[in-house]
Amino acid sequence: MDKLIKNTGINKLIALIVTFVIVQVLISTNIINDYIFSTLVTICINIILAASLNLITGFTGQFSLGHAGFMSIGAYTCAIITLRYSTVWGFVGGLVAGAVFAAMVGFLVGLPTLRLKGDYLAIATLGMAEIIKILFRNVLDDLTNGAAGLRGIPQFINWAWLFLFTAGSVLLISNFINSSHGRACISIREDEIASEAMGVNSTKYKVTAFVTGAFFAGIAGAIYASYFYYLKPDYFAFKKSIDILVIVVLGGMGSISGSVIAAILLALISTYLQAFPELNMVINGALFVIIMIFRPQGIMGSKELSLSLIKKWTGQFGRKNGGAA
C-alpha cells in the first residue's frame, strides 16, 4: 500500500516534468505562439481558481458566490507592488502579499458569514465581493486608479512561473484534501451535525477551507495581473465568480481533476466562440441548467482521475490539442 502511494507520487512527478518540458519546447520552437500562450495562461488561472473554489464549495460544501473578490485582492496587491518594485522579486513578493492579503480578508469575511447556511452564505459572499469591487473602484482609487483601471503592470509571468504556481497550487490543494483536515472538511459537507458530534470543529474547518481557497484565488489574481498587465474593477464582478463556479460545477463538485478538465474544456469552447461573447455566455447558462438536470455530479462527480485514466486521457488530449494547433 505504502509502496503504491510512493509510486503514484513518482509517476505524478514524472508526468509533471514531461508536461513542463514539452510545453517549454513548443514555446521555444514557437509552435505555441503568443496567442495560444495567452489561452494557456487563462486556462492555468482558471484551474487555480476552480480548484480553490472547489475546496470551499465542492469539498466543504460552503456555497460561495464571491470568489472573484479574493481574486481581485490578489490581482490589485500584486499589481500595485510590481508597479513600485518592477523586479522579479517585486513580482514574487507582490504575489505572496496578494495571496496572504486575500487570505486575511477571507478570514475576516468568513468568520462571521460562515455561520450562515446554503443560499444565505451564497448571498453574503456575493455581497462581500460586490463591496470589495466598489472599494477598489471608488474608495481606494488613489491606489487603483478607480474605474479606469491600472495599466502597464510589468509582465513577469512566463511558462516556468505559470507552471510552478499552477501545479503547485493544485498539488497543495489536493494534499490538503487528502489529509485528516481535508476529510474533516468533507464530513461537514456530508452532514454537519454528525461531523460536530464526531469531534470536528466545523467552524474552524469551514474558515480554514475558506481562507485557503481565498489564498489560492489571490495567487490566481496575481498571475492575471502580471500577465495581462491591465486591471479594472469591473472585470471582477459577479459574472467572474459565476464563471469560476461554472468550471467547478461542470468538472464535478468534489473533484480537483474534474476542475482541471473543465477549465481546459471551457477555455476551448470560449476560444472557438471568441467572436460571439454573448453566445458563449448563453451556452454557459444552458450548460448550468442541462448539467443540473441531467448530470448534477458534473463530469467527474466526486471522483479523481486514476493513474490509468490520466494516461488514457492525456493521450487523447495530446492528439486533440495537436490537431487544434
Partner: peptide, 28 residues
C-alpha cells in the same frame, strides 16, 4: 420542475444558469 427533489444548491445553480441564458440571449 425537473429538480423538485434535487439539492438546494443544484437548483440555485440552475437559477444562475437561467439568468445567464436570458441575459445574454437577450443581448444576442
Amino acid at each position: 420542475k425537473p429538480l423538485r427533489n434535487a439539492t438546494r444548491i443544484a437548483v440555485l445553480i440552475t437559477a444562475i444558469g437561467v439568468s445567464l441564458f436570458i441575459e445574454y440571449g437577450t443581448m444576442f
